[in-house]
């Protein structure tokens, strides 16, 4: 009935690291690209992020991890999403993440992870592309 299907994205800042410049910039950029962005603030636990993702019925969870804890946080959120029946949700994100860790996380079912200096448009194109593929599949 409604032609326009808004993409809902949760932008989350997991862990104890308070550097939210990247998260805020990406949240604003997604808003400006027409997304509905749910921003949950700092210092989120994986449980909090997944509870919010489920209640908000988001299409995408994007996490910003600069603390080096990515190998703990991404798999943990992925596992909890799967357990909550939200396995169709795209888990993506960015931060200071070495290349081989990126590859390892992708093997574990996590979407693309973007490094520092990535233009926001690249992340937006990626999510749009993923969403379009979901709709047709």
């Amino acid at each position: 009935m409604s032609d326009e299907r808004k993409i809902r994205i949760l932008v989350a800042k997991p862990g104890l690291d308070g550097h939210d410049r990247g998260a805020k910039v990406i949240a604003s950029a997604f808003r400006d690209a027409g997304f509905e962005v749910i921003y949950t603030g700092l210092h989120q636990t994986p449980e909090m992020i997944v509870a919010a993702a489920v209640q908000e019925d988001v299409d995408v969870v994007a996490m910003s991890v600069l603390s080096g804890a990515h190998m703990t946080l991404f798999p943990r959120v992925k596992k909890l999403l799967d357990e909550a029946g939200a396995d169709q949700v795209l888990l993506t994100g960015g931060g200071i993440i070495p290349e081989d860790d990126v590859a390892e996380l992708e093997r574990r079912g996590i979407g693309r992870l973007f490094g520092p200096g990535t233009p926001t448009t690249t992340a937006i194109e990626y999510v749009n592309g993923w969403f379009a593929a979901q709709q047709t599949s």
Partner: peptide, 28 residues
């Protein structure tokens, strides 16, 4: 936003203490 059609929904921040409480459901 009337310009982009997007929105920033930030009200959950204040309810973070209740974020994992199964007895509450928050929707933005």
């Amino acid at each position: 936003s009337p310009y982009s059609g997007g929105a920033l929904l930030g009200d959950r921040i204040r309810m973070n203490d209740l974020a994992t409480d199964a007895g509450i459901f928050i929707r933005s």
